[in-house]
Amino acid sequence: MRVTAVTCVKNEGPFLLEWIAFNQLIGVTDHLFYSNDCSDGTDALLDALADRGLCQHLPNPAEGRNYQMEALKDARKQDIVINADWVWVADVDEFLNIHVGDHTIPALIDACGDPQAISLNFQFFANDGIETFKDAPVIGQFARSHNPDMWCGESAIEVKSLVRHDFPLQYYGAHRPFQKGKARPEWADGSGRKVPHKFLVAANPRRIRRFPAHGARAFATLNHYALRSLDSYLVKNDRGDVNRENRAFDDTYWRERNDPAWEDTSIQRYLPDLKAALVELKKDKEIKALHDASVKAHVAKRDELVGQPEYQDMQAQLRAASTLPPQEEAMLIELGLLEPAK
């Protein structure tokens, strides 16, 4: 079975080897990376990996700012996607945590009855007070999340999707495929059940990227490490090319994903094999040197940012931020169970 992972990256150098090695463990056979405007050596590392047949690396074709959708449009023309049995569209901070069989994509597909698409609900993993970037597997560092059935007061949680080669595809979306016309493909959730009808037909614009997570994760969950360490989050914000001059930093994204109410270490079942795979990859001296250079660049960018007053303010604001999501905090205040912050 050929499974191709498609992703877009910018300055993700320190995290590439873990994501590729993890995906290989769960059955991904091919990787297609699109990169743009990298300054940490991400592109050089991807080129070296491509030279060794470990991925295909292309410049992002987007001429405007719609990087992901332009890349997904281009991906349909690439043999690595055309010849795949399944396509997995995901980001480098997303890890497919499979709970059935031998914990691989083929086992997930078999458990779901081999449908034409499988959509897996996110579980957002909190920063949980981890400040310092560490060059070690992300899946081993962060083990707390929101209640997997509820996120920010919502039972419907976003998904990412595996897509079979015969899906009646109109186009790939970042979270789900969209089918042609009135086609009704066989489409399962992470428990092998049919996805909700409104999700299937995208009848409600607010629900085209999500559906209720309760009962939908028996076979797999999508672990999303959107925050990582505080160091890495500062670097991520710089990467976003946002002008914050003369306005306050909005910590909503951080607070919505930094709820540590739930402990879940299930993905750490992969850690021994992942660590061994990373050792093998780094036996290649060039690959190791390029990885180490990206780590050094990541730390140097952190050091540069924390020397700037606006990032010092951001760092302090995130350290002090409530670990209650804004929606949950507002509800508790309204019920008189929590005093408003002064």
Rank of each mutant, 00 (worst) to 15 (best):
S145T: 15
G181M: 10
P115R: 10
T252N: 12
E263I: 12
V201Y: 13
A220L: 08
L72Q: 04
A202N: 10
S191C: 09
L17P: 00
V6D: 03
N121A: 06
L274P: 05
K180Q: 15
A321H: 05
Q141W: 01
S35I: 06
D241I: 08
P326S: 09
R269G: 13
R210E: 15
H57P: 01
E263G: 09
R247S: 14
R228M: 10
A84W: 01
S35D: 08
E286H: 09
H298N: 11
A203C: 07
Q170T: 04
V201T: 12
K77F: 12
A300V: 05
E94F: 09
V89I: 15
L234M: 14
E256L: 12
A276C: 05
C152G: 07
L58P: 00
D47S: 13
V306W: 03
M69G: 05
F122C: 08
P309W: 08
R206G: 14
T104Q: 10
I157R: 07
I20C: 10
I26C: 06
A316L: 10
L222H: 01
R76I: 06
E329P: 00
E286F: 01
F95I: 06
Y270W: 11
L25K: 03
G153F: 10
R164L: 05
P196N: 03
L17I: 04
D303K: 15
N258M: 10
G240P: 03
A48W: 02
T252Y: 13
M331T: 15
A220C: 11
E256S: 12
V163P: 00
D284T: 07
L305P: 04
I333C: 12
A202I: 00
N204W: 14
N66K: 14
G153Q: 08
N147A: 14
M331N: 11
D259R: 07
Q317L: 15
A289W: 06
G307Q: 12
A289M: 08
Q312Y: 01
P59N: 09
A107W: 04
K282G: 00
D251S: 11
K342F: 12
D128M: 01
R76F: 00
R207T: 03
L200H: 09
L25P: 02
Y172T: 04
R244I: 09
G190S: 11
D135L: 09
V306P: 02
F133Q: 05
F142K: 00
V87R: 00
N83R: 14
A341V: 14
R76H: 08
Q317N: 14
S145V: 11
D110E: 15
G215R: 07
E334N: 13
A289S: 13
P59Y: 04
S145A: 15
R319Q: 12
K134I: 14
R210T: 07
S266M: 03
A261N: 05
Q315M: 12
Y171W: 13
V28A: 08
N223M: 07
R302C: 04
V299D: 10
V92N: 05
A213L: 10
F22S: 03
P196V: 07
T265N: 13
L108R: 07
L234S: 06
T323L: 07
